[in-house]
Design a protein around this nucleic acid. Structure first.
Lengths: 257, 257
DNA sequence: ACGACCTTAACGGTGCGTTAAAGTTT
DNA sequence: CAAACTTTAACGCACCGTTAAGGTCG
């Protein structure tokens, strides 16, 4: 005589779909009170409406079905407290993450309104690399090419790795230009007087690409600077220019805040 | 002689995994510059690093791969503006949603700290239902049972549906109690003097469960009221108590604001 | 007997990570 | 020859929605 429901009615009363109830049964989250052994129809009782409500209430606060299942199996207060605390943390993180995205997107839209051509900037991490290099003060960017050639001829060609570029210790924002052409070296090498041998430190870098002309590079520099400003990053060392066959990858080492 | 990379090196340079590149190839988002027809090795060129950076920059702002693919195929400024605007909206919505969740979870934790037993509250929508009812002013909750019995004996039993309960037009927060026992009716029915025939309107309801004793019901009432307060809802009509075989479902009709 | 219900099974969506088995390059 | 690379194929994750083909209930 005790009241009971078939899946459809119980789903209606509980505010979920029958499919959801079948799924909850399958994963062991909410088992029907009984199953007809001939027809396999599920049977639910009114008390299970409370269980379902408890599940729904936790879901709305962002709990995963696995968390809810574990909680309802142990039923401990400590467990519940832990889950709620986790949910609080992840809600706060979601707010922070979404706020950042909002700032970024807003800045990007403003750029478009000023009809600037978008230049994508991305973060990359680089491991430390052994390099041979050749630091020099110059008056124009083009002038650094002479030191690049010197470096390339001084380092044995069988030791030169794929990575080549220039570090800029100071550029247009200072009174003078100071560059340091470098090449990665594959193996130990006797340091001759014509170049320094040292490690390029590991770094987190804001990167953008440009063509090899000065105008294009300037735009990329501006894009990275703006990108860093919107995100609150600061420069953490010499900028890097990486040569990639007709393409320049410009990298600004980052520190946050 | 043009530089080119195999998938692993290109992945390293681009800051993604080889698997990601294979996936982007598969869905037509970023096709390698070439494929060795014998070995099927993918070949990428430096210019594609720009493409990859553009993809990554959009991903960080929350764009889906499908959106990015469509954008890069059309390449129109209008399309880009539309996507950015969508992203902005969804970021704002995320913030709002997460803020709500944060409030709810925080309130729930405070309840636990006050060592209140949690009573889950959920929202349900109910369609309109035809009912027979019997409104009456009473002095105690128990007194309403007499009118329930009157109603049940007055309505032909073959017309009574599964839904039974009482509407409370005013309860303990007012000076007097006014209840309205009701039963759903299955089909048209001559309205005799002993009961009213009317439609229970469709509603959005905050629902909780209790046992049939007054103490338990009181706790559920308090839980719902608190729940509504945290979420900024207001009461939009008479409360409903639904009888479910040893269980009471208490429903507060809601309006937002 | 017909419609409204129920059953299981299987695919889809999002964006890859993770084996696994087998071929390629150095 | 072995290490380090590459390939395709297939499953896994979270949470169900959506057919599809076939029994059951009133």
């Amino acid at each position: 005589m005790a009241a009971h429901y078939r899946i459809g009615e119980f789903a209606d009363l509980g505010g979920v779909s029958p499919k959801t109830l079948r799924f909850y049964d399958e994963i062991g989250l909410l088992r029907p009170a009984g199953v007809n052994s001939r027809t396999h129809y599920r049977r639910y009782v009114p008390q299970q409406l409370e269980d379902l409500a408890a599940i729904r209430a936790l879901r709305e606060m962002g709990a995963s079905l696995a968390e809810i299942r574990d909680l309802r199996k142990s039923g401990s207060t400590a467990q519940r407290r832990k889950i709620l605390s986790t949910l609080k943390d992840s809600a706060q993180q979601s707010i922070e993450a979404a706020s950042k995205v909002l700032d970024w997107v807003t800045a990007e839209i403003e750029d478009m309104d000023r009809s600037e051509r978008p230049i994508p900037v991305v973060v990359k991490r680089r491991p430390p690399v052994w390099i041979a290099s050749n630091r020099a003060r110059v008056n124009t960017y083009a002038e650094i090419e002479r030191f690049e050639r010197e470096l390339l001829s001084a380092v044995p060609s069988d030791a030169i790795g794929a990575l080549r570029g220039t570090l800029w210790h100071s550029c247009s924002d200072a009174d003078f230009l100071e560059g340091e052409p470098f090449v990665a070296v594959k193996h130990a090498l006797p340091a001759k007087g014509a170049f320094d041998l040292r490690q390029l430190p590991a770094a987190t870098l804001a990167c953008a690409y440009s063509k090899t002309d000065d105008r294009s590079a300037e735009l990329a520099y501006l894009a990275i600077r703006k990108w860093m400003q919107v995100r609150g990053y600061k420069l953490a060392g010499p900028k890097r220019e990486i040569y990639l066959d007709q393409l320049l990858e410009i990298q600004f080492p980052l520190k946050s805040a």
